[in-house]
């Protein structure tokens, strides 16, 4: 039997390298997937421009952050980007609404099949991508400032006397707290407010919603604004947590789509759960358990290799495999989203 201290060390190790990172990554995915699933539920197409919408919103937040920093504005221990967030959301919402009016509304009026809208979203993706690259360039940008850690690994070690440190990054806590607030607010809005209910009704049965006098253009407008806000928040949190690079944001499309489908597309609660499912699977499958096992197993029997199920190079494969399994076993997703 391993000693208690070893078990604690092992748990700390896992918490530090799998649980906490998965919690923040999962929150970011959940916010992204919520946007995708709302667009899907109301406008009924897979929005390929969502990753680039996230990138666009984050870029605006970064530019405003830089400007605030040059003015000497800051939030003390919190990142300045939070101060820039509302402006970034506003700018992103305006841009997506412009794209809706100039691009998507036409296909809605034509009652085009959803795949036409998806292809149109590819065009939007190209343009958003170009705008972002043109303005801020394709390279990595870091914009996190303020306090980096709430508890540093070393402090944790001296505090607890354990071998392993548990570093709690402020971005992790920030991500989780903001996600909690945003998700609660969104669910309250959808369940309780008149417009939120109208959105659900529209998603549920479009013809009947129209017959009930629900104004589709207003619903669509509100949906885009919420999607833009969610995308910007998700993008900024991800960028604070890691770094901002346009291509990485494009690549997040896959885990985000996977999260939305796994949870049940068109189901907000599914998107949240799906986000965490994808994040926890990705991190726990690509984590090297060697050190973890060393604590738990009797001496001499620890594994030779890294004890890693899959190399981190294949983290996309995790979302994909989960996606494929869901499509094979239960195409409606965990919470029975819509499927045609």
């Amino acid at each position: 039997m391993p000693e208690t201290i070893d078990v604690l060390n092992a748990i700390t190790l896992l918490a530090n390298f799998v649980l906490l990172p998965a919690l923040s990554y999962g929150s970011q995915l959940a916010l992204g997937a919520l946007g995708v699933t709302l667009i899907f539920g109301i406008l009924r197409f897979a929005n390929f421009a969502h990753g680039d919408t996230m990138a666009f919103g984050t870029m605006i937040a970064i530019l405003i952050t830089w400007w605030f920093q040059s003015l000497g504005l800051s939030l003390g221990p919190l990142p300045t980007a939070l101060l820039a967030l509302p402006f970034a959301i506003l700018a992103t919402a305006i841009v997506v609404i412009i794209f809706d009016k100039t691009v998507f509304s036409f296909y809605r009026r034509q009652k085009s099949p959803p795949v036409m809208l998806a292809i149109a979203s590819v065009g939007v993706m190209f343009m958003m991508n170009a705008i972002v690259r043109f303005i801020i360039g394709p390279d990595d940008q870091r914009f996190a400032d303020g306090e980096k850690f709430i508890i540093k690994a070393r402090e944790f070690k001296t505090m607890t006397g354990l071998n392993e440190g548990l570093a709690i990054k402020s971005t992790t806590v920030l991500t989780v707290v903001i996600t909690l607030i945003v998700v609660t607010a969104l669910f309250w809005f959808l369940q309780r407010s008149r417009t939120g209910k109208a959105m659900r009704a529209f998603s549920d049965n479009e013809d009947l919603a129209l017959l009930s006098g629900i104004n589709p253009e207003r619903i669509v407008l509100v949906t885009w604004i919420i999607a833009a806000a969610l995308a910007t928040i998700a993008g900024v949190l991800y960028g604070l947590d890691k770094s901002f690079k346009p291509f990485t944001y494009f690549q997040m499309l896959l885990p985000i789509f996977a999260a939305a489908i796994v949870g049940g597309i068109g189901q907000p609660i599914g998107a949240v759960v799906g986000g965490y499912v994808i994040a926890f699977s990705e991190l726990s499958i690509t984590y090297a358990y060697k050190k973890f096992l060393k604590y738990l197993l009797p001496e001499g029997s620890e594994p030779e290799g890294l004890a890693q199920l899959l190399s981190t190079d294949y983290k996309f494969a995790v979302s994909f495999i989960i996606l494929v399994v869901v499509l094979l076993v239960r195409p409606t997703g965990i919470f029975r989203g819509r499927v045609l």
């Binding site: 209910k197 659900r200 549920d204 049965n205 009947l208 017959l211 009930s212 006098g213």
Partner: peptide, 23 residues
């Protein structure tokens, strides 16, 4: 009252009534 798809299946009965009175 349409013949088919005449309710919001994902919403509660009360919400269905509220949506009926949306205007």
């Amino acid at each position: 009252v349409p013949q088919t798809s005449n309710i919001f299946t994902g919403m509660t009965v009360e919400e269905n009534l509220q949506m009926g009175a949306y205007l």
